[in-house]
Every structure is written in C-alpha cells, then in structure tokens.
C-alpha cells in the first residue's frame, strides 16, 4: 500500500523491498527534501511535466513571436521526457504515469487523426480532404477504440509486474466521461441544433454504447483486471471526475468574482470636455491629410 516515496503513488500490490523507500521514511525531513532521488525525480520527471503547461502558456503569448514559436517544441519536449521517465527515473513511482502515456499515446493518436479525417473528409467548405478520408477516419477511430479495449481484455499494461495503477484510473475515467459527456452532448446538439436530430441520436448512441461497455466490464473479468476491481475503479473514477470538475468550476468562479469585483470598483469615466477650436482645427487637418490629401 504505502510506498513511502516522496513522489509516490498508491500501488496496491507492489512488494515493499525497495530499500530506498524505507530509507526515506527514516530520514530527517530536511534530508528527505533534498535527497538525490528527489533531485533526479525533479530533473527527469517534474520539470518536464511542468514544461507541458508552460509550453501551452507560451503558445498563448501575443507580445513575443519567438516565445510563441517555442511553445510547441517545449510541449513536445516535455511529453517526450515524461514518457521517457520510466527509463530515466525508474525508481520514482510517478514515472508510472509516463509509462501510461506511452501506452495510450498510440490509440489517442489514432482517435485524433481519425476524427480529423472524418471531419474534413466530408463536404466542408475549406480544407476538404479526398472522399476516402471519411471512411478511413471512422476506421481509424474504430481501431483506436479497439486498441484501448484490447488493453483491458487481452493484455493490460504492466508496471513492475502489476497492472499499472494509473491505467485503471485512466481507463475508468475515460469510459465514464465518454458515456456521461456523450449523453449530455447529444442533448446539447438536439436542443440547440437546427434539424440535428439524427446527429444527436448518433452521438447519444455512442455515449450509451460506452455505458454498455462499462456495464459489461462490471460483470466480466478482463485479462488482468477482475470485475470487482473494475467496479471499485468506476466508483473511485466517479469521485475523481466529480472532484476534478467541481474544483475547476470553483476556480473559474473565483476568477469571475475577482474580475467582476475589480470592474465594479472602477470609477465611472467622466465625460470629456468639448474640443477647443484649435483641437477641432487639428482634427480637421489630420482627416484632410488622410482622406482628402493629394495623390502620391
């Protein structure tokens, strides 16, 4: 259960024979904060992880073009280093998330590329792809989903001889989010769209289908994950999902309150004094120079 690692995670069945973990428990707090393993984890996992949001923040920069251009490489470098953390800092339990990223990056790319091809393979006014892109896109999406399903039914990703704990979290949250958001999105399309009943039905069926997969997994064992484990994970995934969404919404609410309070505190702008004759003449000159000026 508790692995005692400062960057540790919950690891249900991992044997506690790693001496470094026990050493940390007996270390004084000051030493534990600056231990070599912590510095390694900081350099090879946490800094690359921090580069990902930093890169996205740089992409949003409007003032400096070179900073914006560096954004995407920074994100990419961060992702690569996080994925590589399972080799660069194998002792850190957090690198299990890098292992997860490596496992799911393939299906996620298939889903993303498939969605792109399915969207732009249709009769869109700009950036239209050849007609074959549309069925190929749907095929790619189906392959991505089949790949993810195979990771549950055929061979789950293993980390230190056990199922990667983050895989179970990711898989349960993904399926739950897919079926809940799918039904909601179907309602949105139906209520706000114009004659989009068929689209809403298809999206709703997709969401319900995800729910069906979730139900099947509640009843049947997977390759390495039992039905009971899956039910536990779904229960915990609901807690994760609700907590995360509520936290994000609360932060956005705080942001809105701060801005509203500041805008309300601003004094009203007093009406400006009318232009003097000299100012009017100056304005007329500028307008004349720009509109009615001589041809160059």
């Amino acid at each position: 259960m508790a692995d005692g690692h400062p960057y540790g995670v919950e690891r249900t069945a991992f044997t506690l024979d790693s001496t470094n973990l026990h050493q940390l428990e007996t270390m004084p707090m000051g030493m534990a904060l600056v231990g070599p393993q912590q510095i390694e984890a900081l350099l090879w996992f946490w800094l690359p992880l921090a580069l990902v949001p930093l890169g996205f923040w740089m992409l949003l920069s409007r003032s400096n073009e070179s900073v914006r251009k560096l954004g995407m490489p920074t994100v990419f470098f961060g992702f690569i280093m996080v994925i590589a953390s399972q080799w660069t800092v194998p002792d850190s339990d957090s690198s299990a998330s890098g292992h997860l990223l490596l496992v799911v990056i393939g299906p996620i790319l298939l889903l993303g590329i498939g969605s792109f091809m399915a969207i732009f393979g249709g009769p869109v006014p700009v950036g239209r792809l050849p007609p074959v892109a549309r069925p190929a896109g749907y095929f790619s999406i189906a392959m991505g989903l089949a790949w993810l399903l195979a990771l549950h039914m055929v061979q789950s990703p293993l980390w230190r001889g056990e199922v990667n704990p983050y895989w179970m979290v990711w898989w349960a949250v993904f399926l739950l989010a897919l079926c809940l958001a799918g039904t909601s999105l179907a309602q949105v399309v139906y209520l706000f769209g114009d004659n989009r009943g068929r689209t809403a039905a298809n999206v709703g069926i997709f969401g319900l289908g995800s729910g069906g997969v979730l139900l099947v997994m509640m009843f049947n064992d997977g390759a390495q994950i039992s039905a009971l484990q899956m039910r536990s994970q779904i229960w915990l995934a609901a807690a994760d999902l609700l907590g995360t969404i509520a936290g994000i919404l609360m932060a956005v609410l705080a942001f809105a309150i701060v801005i509203t309070l500041y805008e309300r505190s601003l004094s009203e702008i007093e009406p400006a004094a009318p232009l003097s004759e000299a100012e009017k003449q100056r304005v007329s000159d500028i307008i004349f120079d720009n509109i009615g000026g001589e041809d160059e």
Binding site: L49, S97, L100, L101, V104, I108, L111, G112, G114, S115, F116, A118, I119, F120, G121, G122, P123, V124, R134, G137, Y138, I141, Y166, V169, W170, W171, V173, F174, A177, L178, A181, G182, L185, V189, R196, R198, T199, N202, V203, F206, G207, D240, L241, T244
Partner: peptide
Amino acid sequence: AVVFLALVTAAGLLVGITMAHITG
C-alpha cells in the same frame, strides 16, 4: 494529470465524432 488526460481524450473524441456527423 491522468484524470485530466482521460477527460480531454473523451471530450476530444466526442467533439470529433459530433463534428464529423455535422460536416458529413
């Protein structure tokens, strides 16, 4: 981070499928 990745993947897939239906 793991939960967020799962959420973004699910949301992206749903939006992609919806847009594909709408453009198609």
